[in-house]
Simulated scan of single mutants.
Amino acid sequence: MIYTVTFNPSLDYIVSVSDFKLGLTNRTDSELLLPGGKGINVSTVLQNLGIANTAFGFTAGFVGEEVRKEVEQLGVKAEFISLDEGVSRINLKLKSIDGTEINGRGPRIPREAVDALMTQLDRLGADDTLVLAGSIPASMPDDIYQKIMERLDGRDVRIVVDATKDLLLNVLGHHPFLIKPNNHELGDIFGVKLSEREEVVPYAKKLQEKGAVNVLVSMAGKGAVLLAEDGSVYAAEAPKGTLKNGVGAGDSMVAGFLAGYGESGDYEHAFRMGLAAGSASAFSEQLATKDEIKKVYETCKITKIG
């Protein structure tokens, strides 16, 4: 079973306003309301690919109840911990002004809720996969990723970490099965600018040497690179298509990789599935469907460079 954790889920209110005027009343041309958060995005794409999974996390208030309902309607098993105080966040995303967003803060997460999450995680074991994605709310301990991995140490759980800088670096010693920085995040870690596929390889290798099993680097329009556990290095150009929505593309790549690896255990196929899923979501108004991913998969060209 694949499990995802979203510490701070949201309802994403995605609107388009063709002629936005500051300081005046504006009316939307289109509206979309979706459950949001990186872990939930991974769960959604996995479900779209026909892969059963369970979403963990924290919800609060009437917004939290709507998040739960929306996630369950997608077919994902929602096992969110309901908080007694606060309200889950609503994120406003204004598509028509260069991806402008206003994101809510979300509720305070008490120690008791964190303990309850840890108890949920205790049931994971061999053949399970856990996806830890995104930032950590200020009300939670900043070493929560490490604590989770320490708790699961020795249980043969595959753990995926999609986080930035110290959050990522601090868990490498626990040997996450997959990490997925983008080229900018990878460059920030080492204080360099990385813009070409060949440039990311030595720095991704450094993260592998620090403990990551597989390193998948997304590069938006420049494609992606995978350094696999078996020593293979794969690179790919970005598939051709029209960018409609960059939100969730990286999460879709994680879902596609896990789906591909689960099907075959083959890293080249997993990489191709990840690239296809990430690109298909970028080419869609919403997160990609199975048919959209399959269509892009047929156009992906993978090169083994090491």
Rank of each mutant, 00 (worst) to 15 (best):
E112Q: 14
M253G: 04
S218G: 04
F177S: 14
P35K: 08
V157H: 05
E85R: 13
M118D: 11
T242R: 10
K193S: 15
G50S: 10
Y267C: 04
G106R: 00
D128P: 01
P35W: 04
V201Y: 03
K205G: 14
E198K: 13
V296P: 02
Y13T: 10
Q146V: 09
K301N: 06
L24P: 11
E66C: 08
Y267L: 05
E70F: 02
I159P: 02
G256M: 11
R89D: 02
H174G: 03
A78R: 02
L124G: 00
G86A: 12
G37Y: 04
N26R: 11
D143T: 08
N183K: 04
Q73T: 07
R272I: 07
G211P: 01
D143Y: 04
K165C: 12
P9V: 11
L169I: 08
I2G: 07
A204K: 00
E79V: 06
I136L: 05
L117R: 07
L74H: 00
S30D: 10
G75N: 13
N245M: 09
I109Q: 05
K38A: 13
Q120N: 15
E285A: 05
R108E: 12
P137L: 08
S232P: 00
E292T: 14
T59E: 01
V225R: 01
A236T: 08
A228C: 13
S30L: 03
M253N: 08
V160K: 01
L117A: 12
V17Y: 13
L167Y: 04
T25G: 15
S82T: 15
T303F: 12
A163P: 00
A55Y: 05
I305M: 00
S16M: 14
V296R: 00
G221F: 12
Y203M: 07
A277S: 10
D162S: 08
G37W: 00
D142N: 14
I189G: 01
E196V: 03
V171M: 00
F283D: 09
E112K: 14
L172D: 05
G23K: 14
Q146T: 09
E112L: 15
V63A: 02
Y234H: 03
D127G: 08
D122F: 14
F62R: 15
V71H: 05
E101C: 09
H175T: 14
E72K: 09
V67G: 03
G50M: 12
I148Y: 13
N214W: 04
S96I: 13
V217T: 08
V131Q: 00
L74T: 07
E79G: 09
A259I: 14
E72R: 10
F56A: 09
V71R: 03
A204P: 11
A113G: 05
L49V: 14
V225W: 00
L168C: 07
I90D: 05
V217E: 02
D122Q: 13
A55V: 10
E263T: 01
G173C: 08
K77Q: 08
L186K: 01
I90P: 01
